[in-house]
Amino acid sequence: MNVTQHSDFNPPEIDLKQYIRSIPDYPKPGILFYDISTLLRNADAWQIATARMAHGVAKWQPDLIAGIESRGFVSASPLASAMGCGMIMIRKPGKLPGKTISINYDLEYGQNCIHIQEDAVKPGQKVVIIDDLLATGGTLQASINLLRKVGAEIVGAAALIELKSLKGREKIDVPLHSVITYE
């Protein structure tokens, strides 16, 4: 089904939070980790989550879906397929063949770097960026900046889960769609 042609599509009402396991003190003490593997292994819940994400971003009519390494690939791949778009990968250093374009960015506790292939996007292509989780927003905004660096038009971003209390949405300068939110 091409979701962009079915604007009246409304995925069934189901609380997807019941399919996400919370793991305290992972990967370090004080962190509450939202484990999406329990959602992914339930075929019905996963299809509903994917349909909700596709329905939320269809209005932006992207040419490409960009997935952020690595769990962002999990949502970006079926979304690109459902929407009839191509998909590109935003990766850590040394993970992509050929020439790459990179950007360094600050995290709360250090720096990081992400890459895309030099020829991944043509100038002017409309791109939606996907990640599994929006927390503080640093990686998502860095991805937006990286794609703009090569001439992409970033029309929106989406996350499977948004942690509202961390205010990552405030750092993002494009429209954002979240499927599941936690305060």
Rank of each mutant, 00 (worst) to 15 (best):
I154D: 05
E108P: 00
L64N: 04
H6A: 02
G67C: 05
L40R: 03
Q61D: 00
G110K: 15
V128G: 09
V74R: 07
I20E: 11
Y105T: 14
P62W: 06
A158G: 06
I88S: 04
D44K: 11
D35T: 00
V150K: 13
N145W: 12
P93G: 15
H6S: 14
N42W: 04
A120M: 06
E69G: 11
S75G: 10
A76I: 11
P97E: 12
Q117E: 10
P29N: 02
L166H: 09
R52Q: 14
F33M: 08
A142R: 06
T4Q: 15
S165I: 08
P93V: 15
G124Q: 08
I144P: 00
I90S: 09
F9T: 05
L133R: 02
G86I: 14
I161P: 00
N10E: 11
D119R: 13
H55I: 08
D63T: 05
P29L: 04
S81H: 06
G30K: 12
N104D: 15
N112M: 15
R41W: 04
Q61N: 05
Y109H: 15
A54P: 03
I114S: 09
A43L: 00
H177T: 07
R148F: 06
Y26D: 07
C85M: 12
I68H: 03
A43S: 11
K17Q: 12
Q5T: 14
G124S: 10
S22M: 09
S7W: 02
R169M: 06
M83L: 15
H55A: 14
G137D: 10
N10D: 15
Q5V: 01
K17S: 08
D35I: 00
I23N: 12
G137V: 07
A49R: 04
D106F: 06
A157Y: 01
M1S: 13
V179P: 05
I172C: 08
I172H: 03
Y26I: 01
I90A: 10
D35N: 01
D8L: 04
V150C: 12
D15A: 09
K95G: 13
P29T: 04
H177R: 10
A157G: 04
G84K: 03
Y105N: 14
L147H: 10
G30R: 12
S165M: 04
K167C: 01
A58F: 02
T139H: 12
Y182N: 12
V128R: 01
D8F: 03
K92R: 15
V155P: 00
I129H: 03
L96E: 11
W46K: 14
A66R: 10
S102A: 15
G110V: 13
P93A: 13
A120K: 03
K164Q: 06
H55T: 13
T50K: 11
V74S: 02
A45V: 07
I14F: 03
E153I: 10
L16Y: 01
Y109I: 00
N145G: 04
V127R: 01
K59N: 01
L147M: 08
D63M: 02
N112I: 13
M89A: 10
R71M: 10
P29R: 05
M1G: 13
G94W: 04
T4Y: 05
